[in-house]
Design a binder for these strands. Structure first.
Lengths: 204, 204
DNA sequence: AATTGTGAATTGATTCACAGCT
DNA sequence: AGCTGTGAATCAATTCACAATT
């Protein structure tokens, strides 16, 4: 694995570049300079170029990058050329909103099922909401590797343990708590209150 | 302003420490060591101590930190001792879920109004949903400094321009786009698809 | 004896400056 | 001429190691 010393932040920015490239594609732009793409992504041109060199050489000197080709390359690097199945655990307010949101599919992710302790029979956008008791079996059976966690703080760690035990390798955590997971599992946390608090420090 | 060379990430972690301290308070713990608190926050003890020294000395050598006092200090530093008013713009799926969520108040934030191009008369938890046309006036009148942005990509930049013009200084952005704002405005973006993409890179 | 606070060392990320292609 | 690719330099954040304090 050469990935070992690529900054985590570079990987993160790759996704942002990818989104910008998508917009360029929609506008039938077929070549873009590091300067223009960096501007759209809110970074410096040298940083964009440095980020890309971790994975190879994709540009043409004197010209820039081919939008289509670069986008394809980033897809390859990020490894989601095929639809990646994701489960959502905790179908409360936030959870159901995310189910209804549905904007993930276009980015290569498909929410295949949701789980809740007290599932109402209703489903969103055809996504079944199942009892949490069935979660581990589902994960194993469908070989799901990614989960979105939107349960209240109290249940977060125990649900996480079950998911990890069943084979989940990556968790997008919205519960306002720090999850304890084994090394091979990745967690990205989005804590809304923390984000707000952080912002409030910077206002005068 | 001494804040100038304090790492942005330290500020961010302060919020996390604050949350952990809250849990300790609930359990009537009154003293905590850097080791224990760091563990709860998912960081190294030295990092916790370093983060705190940017703001002063709050511990007792040989003993640890007084939970109550440290929590109070962090509140002061983060500057949200009084309820901070926040508006939410874009009352679609995600926006209304956040309105209903309501967990912000406990952390010192109050969503005072929501805005939408096509507001249904209904309100969530007593928070009025008003037409976007009234937004700038509201911001000025109530001196609101913070906003949560949950409009679709297409409208994000123009709504942002209006908000900034009216005096908004901090934005928590959920629109999947990079916002262009003047230097005195802070933006924290949460892009769900980017988070998922980033996770997917790390699974094997 | 235990634990904080911190300068120094290290590690990591960003930016510079320019060589190398097209 | 223009723009990428990249080693070197800089800047920032983290961790170490230990002195200071209770």
């Amino acid at each position: 694995m050469p990935r070992i010393d690529i900054p985590k932040k570079s990987i993160y920015r790759l996704s942002i570049y990818q989104r910008c490239l998508g917009k360029l594609k929609e506008n039938d732009v077929d070549t873009v300079s590091s300067e223009a793409l960096a501007k759209a992504a809110g970074v410096k041109p040298t940083q964009l170029r440095k980020d890309l060199t971790y994975f190879g050489q994709f540009g043409t000197r004197g010209l820039g990058y081919n939008v289509e080709a670069l986008s394809k390359t980033i897809s390859d690097v990020l490894g989601h050329n095929h639809l990646q199945p994701v489960i959502l655990v905790g179908a409360g307010n936030l959870g159901s909103a995310l189910l209804r949101y549905g904007g993930f599919r276009k980015e290569g992710f498909e929410v295949v099922a949701a789980f809740d302790l007290a599932p109402r029979p209703q489903s969103h956008l055809g996504i079944p909401i199942l009892p949490t008791a069935e979660m581990t079996e589902f994960i194993r059976e469908h070989q799901v590797k990614m989960a979105i966690l939107t349960v209240p703080t109290s249940g977060a760690q125990s649900v996480t343990n079950q998911m990890v035990e069943a084979g989940i390798q990556a968790i997008l955590n919205f519960s306002p708590t720090v999850l304890d997971v084994p090394d091979h599992v990745v967690v990205n946390s989005v804590d809304l209150a923390v984000e707000l608090e952080n912002l409030s420090y910077f206002i005068r």
